[in-house]
């Protein structure tokens, strides 16, 4: 999610990764591991759960003199930490743009 002024200045940028964070369930403890050959237990599961709604809230502060901000929200599926090529390494599941103004 990003919020920018009309001239492109970024006021807020927030990224969140939703995934199963797996460990290997051995005595090493809480170290996250990648790959099916290593992972076993879950250290954290912040994925979207079936038939549940997840709510994210973002507070925007308008810079002095700025009356309007462009807000872009994008939900992506990606295989790796890098976005890579859209349509190959990652897919845009949802995207929207909104203008937010002060009263």
């Amino acid at each position: 999610m990003t919020a920018k002024t009309k001239d492109g200045k970024e006021v807020l940028k927030s990224e969140k990764i939703y995934m199963l964070h797996a460990g290997d369930s051995r005595n090493e403890g809480d170290q996250m591991v990648y790959g099916p050959a290593n992972k076993l237990g879950f250290l954290e599961d912040n994925t979207f759960q079936p038939l549940q709604t997840k709510v994210e809230s973002y507070d925007l502060k308008f810079p002095e003199g700025v009356k309007e901000l462009d807000v872009n929200v994008e939900l992506r599926f990606q295989y790796d930490k890098e976005v890579g090529t859209i349509g190959k390494d990652s897919y845009i599941l949802y995207k929207t743009s909104k203008k937010v103004s002060t009263r």
């Binding site: 979207f48 759960q49 709510v55 925007l60 502060k61």
Partner: peptide, 11 residues
């Protein structure tokens, strides 16, 4: 001035 953006994602 401040504003709030709420994103709701339902699976």
């Amino acid at each position: 001035p401040a504003a709030k953006v709420i994103v709701k994602i339902t699976n």
